[in-house]
């Protein structure tokens, strides 16, 4: 998928939504809406009770999804639906739900559902031996994170463990929309490119088409999370939430397409 976007001379648009909010079916419908609006890759979030990397918007959605009874298995159902609608599906999850499910079993279930791989925000390659083996067995992508604080040594070690792409968290801090795109993002992408040929996707709180365009000029993928989730959490009704989601996704999709025009 990233290669196809590269061939089109543009960055990929990566959209995050947690499975199970407002309901499992509702979240899958929302993911399909993203694909129809031009999102290339869906990051399916597994709601977790202790999301230390997430800001208030995603925390809130996770809490509500868990209260509504979402289960880990629902992420595989969502992955199948996303793949069937024509996009690539990656699962983003804190590590404990994978451990509890069983690392090998999680990899097998994800591969069976057609998922591309896993993004692991609280698992560094140093601790990921079991996951790396399972991912290799099942041909899954291993997306680890790099950060502005990463030293050259760490960048080299982390990127060499990645497959698929490298996830650059371009600001220090939790997830959430931010008003400005900083220089730190471009700098981190450049430093990452100096140690790997893998595509580098950037997550830093993008919430508008203009910001997507700006990041799309220097990154291989633009990751949008909180701004999309907020369309759903703040809407007065599920229908209105979907409408807002389609509108924002289309604006972001235009952004990445205009970036290098």
């Amino acid at each position: 998928m990233l290669q196809r976007c590269r061939d089109e001379g543009r960055a990929a648009l990566v959209g995050y939504l947690p499975v199970g909010f407002p309901t499992v079916d509702g979240s899958i419908e929302a993911m399909r809406a993203l694909v129809e609006s031009g999102v290339d890759i869906i990051e399916i979030g597994v709601p977790y009770s202790d999301p230390v990397m997430d800001g208030p918007v995603i925390q809130d959605a996770a809490v509500r999804a868990l209260e509504a009874g979402v289960r880990v298995d629902d992420a595989f159902t969502a992955a199948r639906a996303v793949v069937d609608s024509g996009a690539a599906a990656l699962v983003m999850t804190y590590w404990n739900p994978v451990l509890r499910h069983g690392v090998e079993r999680f990899a097998a279930d994800l591969a069976d559902a057609g998922g591309s791989g896993l993004i692991t925000p609280d698992l560094i390659p140093d601790e990921a031996g079991e996951w790396i083996e399972a991912a290799d067995r099942h041909g899954l992508d291993k997306v680890f994170l790099v950060a502005p604080s990463s030293t050259p040594d760490r960048l080299a070690a982390v990127t060499s463990a990645c497959r698929g792409f490298v996830y650059a968290t371009a600001v220090m801090g939790v997830t959430g929309a931010r008003a400005q795109v900083g220089h730190a993002a471009q700098d981190l992408v450049a430093r990452t490119r100096s140690v790997t040929d893998l595509p580098v996707c950037v997550g830093l709180g993008v919430s508008t088409g203009a910001q997507a365009a700006e990041v799309g000029r220097f990154a291989d993928g633009v990751i949008v999370g909180s701004a999309l989730v907020r369309c759903l959490t703040e809407a007065p009704s599920p229908g209105e939430g979907l409408a807002r989601l389609r509108k924002l996704a289309a604006e972001l999709a235009d952004g990445v397409r205009e970036a290098r025009a």
Binding site: L123, I124, P125, D126, S149, S150, T151, R154, A157, V158
Partner: peptide
């Protein structure tokens, strides 16, 4: 190539945190 796991007590312990915190640790 990754760094070896650190800070283990038998099989327990380790360092399950975001990459952003690794340099500080």
């Amino acid at each position: 190539m990754s760094h070896a796991p650190v800070g283990r007590f038998g099989g327990f312990g380790g360092r399950y945190v975001p990459e952003a915190l690794i340099p500080a640790l």
